[in-house]
Design a protein around this nucleic acid. Structure first.
Length: 627
DNA sequence: CGCCCCCTGCTGGCGTCGCCATTGCATG
DNA sequence: CATGCAATGGCGACGCCAGCAGGGGGCG
C-alpha cells in the first residue's frame, strides 16, 4: 500500500467479478515511530527516519529500555486519531506487529525489508528474489531436488522440516487441531479452519453466476469451469474431453486401460479397485443399506432410495403426452422415447428454430449449446442454471420502481493489503444523462460473500465510530427507546456525500436533502424496513472535510434498530432512495457486475459507505441518490 | 546467520454423491 | 412380444486431504 502526503486521499481499486473495477479512496496510512512518536504519512520518509536514526535512538534514558521499535504497519487515519497508545509491556504492539525485546532490532531490520521491497538474494536458476538468504536456500531445494528431511516410516521426504513434521502426523494419527463443536480433529490448522465453516455455514467463495458456494477457493475455481464449458482435460486415446481431471482419469481407466480387476465370485471385470469393491457388495449377503419396508438390502444409499419407491404409491414422473406415469424417471424417459419420439423430435426442432434450447441432455451432448442470459453475458450449461441466474436479475428489479441500480462488489483478496483498509469513499463512474427521476432511481449495494479479512474492515468501521459523536444519532439519547441498542447503533456512521461538482443537473441549493433507507427481505422482496433520514448540510462534525453528516432529527431508535438488525444479521443488500435533495449525488449506470463496457471515461461521483457493526456487511447510506 | 515453527494459498488426487441411461427381469 | 419395474453402471460434480511453495516471526 502506498502512502501519500498528509491529508491526501488516494485511490485503490476493488475488482468486481465481471471485470469492472470500482475505485476506492483510501484513507492515507500513518506510520508512527515508536520511540519519538513522530508520525509519517510517507513510507519513504518513515524508513529514512529509521535508517538515519531517530533522535531518541540510543538514548538509554529517553526511550524505555523495553522499546526498540514500534511497528511501522499502516494505520488508518481515523484509528490513529481515536486511539491513545501506551507502551508498557515487554513487547511492542501498535498495529499488530510484535517484536520481542532481545531480538527486536535485528528482527525489525529484517522485517523492514518487507516494506522496502529489498530482496537481495536472487535464485540463479529461476531468477526469483528473496529478502532472506535462508529462504533462498530452501527455495533452491525445489531446483536441486534435495529433500534432507526424510520420513522414517515411509519414503516421504521433504525440503523443509515443517513439511516433514506435518507429514509425520499421518503416521502417528496425531490430530492436534480439535473442533470445539464436534469431535472433528485435523492434522493442520488450515483444515480446521475450513471445517469450522461447516458449522458456521460460511462459504466465502461464492460463484457469481449461480448460487453455488464453496469453503475453499480452489473448489470455486474448479466449479467455474462448469459455467465456462471449459474442458481442459482431453483423453489421449479418444476425443473425450473432461472438465475435471479426476473424471478423465476415471474415463481412461474404464475405456482404455482394460479391466484388470476380476471379481472372484462372478465374471465381472472391474477397471479399478474401487469399481471392483463397489461391485463386490453385490455378493455380500448382508448389505449395509436395508429397506425398512421389506427384507431388501443393497450396497448403497442411492440404490436404497430407488428401491424405496416401490413401497411408495406416488408415481411422480408423469408423461406429458399421455396418461403414463412412473415411479422412476428413467422409465418415464424410456417410455417417452419409445412412444412419443416423433413429438419430442418436433418440439426439439421448434426449440432450435426459436433459438431456445432446453433439457439437460441437449446441453450435455453439446457443450456449445449453452443457455445464454438475455440480460447479461452469462451463459450456462443447463437451463435450470439459467433460471436460477435469472432469478438474481429479477430480485434486483423486483421493487415496484424497477430502476434499481445494482452495485455489487467483492474485494479481490489478492489486492487486499495486509494493513487495515479504511474505505472512506467509493467512487463509481457516473453518467448524468442516465440519472432517473426521483422515486425511480435507487442504488442497491450488495456486498459479496467473498469479502476477505472481514475483521480488517470491521476495524476500519469501528475506527469511524470514534469520530461520530452520539449527538449525530440523537441529541439526547435518553429520549429514545431501546437505549441499549444505541450503543451498537453508533457504530453506524452515516456520511452524506460532498457537494458534487461535476454534475450539472444537481446545481442549485438544496438545504434539506434526505435519505430513505429501504431494506428488503432477500427471500420474498417484502419491505422490512424503511427510514427517511433528513440530512442537514454543515453538520457539527468537525474535521470531516467536505463531508456532511446526516443529522439525527428524523431518526428514531426504531429506524436504526431495523438497520442495525440488518447489519447484525449480515444483510448484504440495502436499497437507498432519496427524497430529492439536490445536493445528493445520483448515479445510475449499468450494474457493474453485469456490465462489460468500460466506464473509465465517465465522470466520477463520490459515494459514502456505512461500515457497520460486528459483521462484514457494508451498507451504503446517503450516496447515489436520485434527484 | 540459520534453523525452526507457523500460517496461507494453491494444486493434485481420492472418495463419494446424485443424476441419468442402460440393462435385465417380470408380467400380461 | 410389448410393456413396466427394478437394479446397475457411467459420469459430472463436489468435499476434503496431503503436499508444495512462499512468507513471516522466534530464537539459539
Amino acid at each position: 500500500m502506498n502512502a501519500t502526503s498528509e491529508g491526501e486521499s488516494f485511490p485503490g481499486s476493488v475488482q468486481i467479478p465481471g471485470g469492472t473495477t470500482v475505485l476506492v479512496e483510501l484513507t492515507p496510512d500513518i506510520h508512527i515511530c515508536g520511540i519519538c512518536k513522530q508520525q509519517f504519512n510517507n513510507l519513504d520518509a518513515f524508513v529514512a527516519h529509521k535508517q538515519s536514526g531517530c533522535p531518541l535512538t540510543g538514548s538509554s534514558g529517553a526511550a524505555p529500555s523495553t522499546v526498540q521499535f514500534v511497528s511501522e504497519e499502516t494505520v488508518p487515519a481515523a484509528q490513529t486519531q481515536a486511539t491513545t497508545r501506551t507502551i508498557t509491556s515487554e513487547t511492542q504492539t501498535i498495529t499488530g506487529c510484535q517484536f520481542k525485546t532481545a531480538y527486536g532490532m535485528k528482527d525489525m531490520e529484517r522485517h523492514l525489508k518487507i516494506h522496502t521491497g529489498d530482496k537481495p538474494h536472487k535464485c540463479e536458476v529461476c531468477g526469483k528474489c528473496f529478502s532472506r538468504k535462508d529462504k533462498l536456500k530452501t527455495h533452491m531445494r525445489c531446483h536441486t531436488g534435495v529433500k534432507p528431511y526424510k520420513c522414517k516410516t515411509c519414503d516421504y521426504a521433504a525440503a523443509d522440516s515443517s513439511s516433514l513434521n506435518k507429514h509425520l502426523r499421518i503416521h502417528s494419527d496425531e490430530r492436534p487441531f480439535k473442533c470445539q463443536i464436534c469431535p472433528y480433529a485435523s492434522r493442520n490448522s488450515s483444515q480446521l479452519t475450513v471445517h469450522l465453516r461447516s458449522h458456521t455455514g460460511d462459504a466465502p467463495f461464492q460463484c457469481w453466476l449461480c448460487s453455488a458456494k464453496f469453503k475453499i477457493s480452489s473448489d470455486l475455481k474448479r466449479h467455474m469451469r462448469v459455467h465456462s464449458g471449459e474442458k481442459p482435460f482431453k483423453c489421449e486415446f479418444c476425443n473425450v474431453r473432461c472438465t475435471m481431471k479426476g473424471n478423465l482419469k476415471s474415463h481412461i481407466r474404464i475405456k482404455h486401460s482394460g479391466n484388470n480387476f476380476k471379481c472372484p465370485h462372478c465374471d465381472f471385470l472391474g477397471d479399478s479397485k474401487a469399481t471392483l469393491r463397489k461391485h463386490s457388495r453385490v455378493h455380500q449377503s448382508e448389505h449395509p443399506e436395508k429397506c425398512s419396508e421389506c427384507s431388501y438390502s443393497c450396497p448403497s444409499k442411492a440404490a436404497l432410495r430407488v428401491h424405496e419407491r416401490i413401497h411408495c404409491t406416488d408415481r411422480p414422473f408423469k408423461c406429458q403426452y399421455c396418461s403414463f406415469d412412473s415411479k422412476q424417471p428413467s422409465n418415464l424417459s424410456k417410455h417417452v422415447k419409445k412412444f412419443h419420439a416423433d413429438v419430442v423430435k418436433t418440439e426439439a426442432l421448434d426449440r432450435k428454430d426459436s433459438g431456445r434450447q432446453s433439457s439437460r441432455q441437449v446441453a450435455k451432448l453439446d457443450a456449445k449449446k449453452t443457455f445464454h442470459c438475455d440480460m447479461c453475458e452469462a451463459s450456462f450449461m443447463r437451463e435450470d442454471s439459467l433460471r436460477s441466474h435469472k432469478r438474481q436479475h429479477s430480485e434486483y428489479h423486483e421493487n415496484k420502481n424497477s430502476d434499481v441500480t445494482v452495485l455489487q462488489f467483492q474485494i479481490d483478496p489478492s489486492k487486499q493489503p495486509a494493513a487495515p483498509l479504511a474505505v472512506g469513499h467509493l467512487q463509481v463512474p457516473l453518467q448524468p444523462s442516465q440519472v432517473p427521476p426521483f422515486s425511480e432511481g435507487r442504488v442497491k449495494i450488495i456486498v459479496g460473500h467473498q469479502v476477505p479479512q472481514a475483521n480488517t474492515i470491521i476495524q476500519a468501521a469501528a475506527a469511524a465510530v470514534n469520530i461520530v459523536p452520539p449527538a449525530l444519532v440523537a441529541q439526547n439519547p435518553e429520549e429514545l427507546p431501546g437505549n441499549s441498542r444505541l450503543q451498537i447503533l453508533r457504530q453506524v456512521n452515516l456520511i452524506a456525500p460532498p457537494q458534487p461538482s461535476g454534475c450539472p443537473s444537481e446545481a442549485g441549493a438544496m438545504t434539506q436533502p434526505a435519505v430513505l433507507l429501504t431494506a428488503h427481505d432477500q427471500a420474498d422482496g417484502a419491505t422490512l424496513h424503511q427510514t427517511l433520514i433528513p440530512a442537514t448540510p454543515g453538520s457539527p462534525q468537525e474535521g470531516s472535510g467536505n463531508q456532511t453528516f446526516i443529522t439525527s432529527s428524523g431518526i428514531t431508535c426504531t429506524d436504526f434498530e431495523g438497520l442495525n438488525a440488518l447489519i447484525q444479521e449480515g444483510t448484504t443488500e440495502v436499497t437507498v432512495v432519496s427524497d430529492g435533495g439536490q445536493n445528493i449525488a445520483v448515479a445510475t449506470t449499468a450494474p457493474p457486475i453485469f456490465s462489460s463496457s468500460s466506464q473509465q471515461e465517465l465522470p466520477k461521483q463520490t459515494y459514502s459507505i456505512i461500515q457497520g457493526g460486528a459483521h462484514p456487511a457494508l451498507l451504503c447510506p446517503a450516496d447515489s441518490i436520485p434527484d
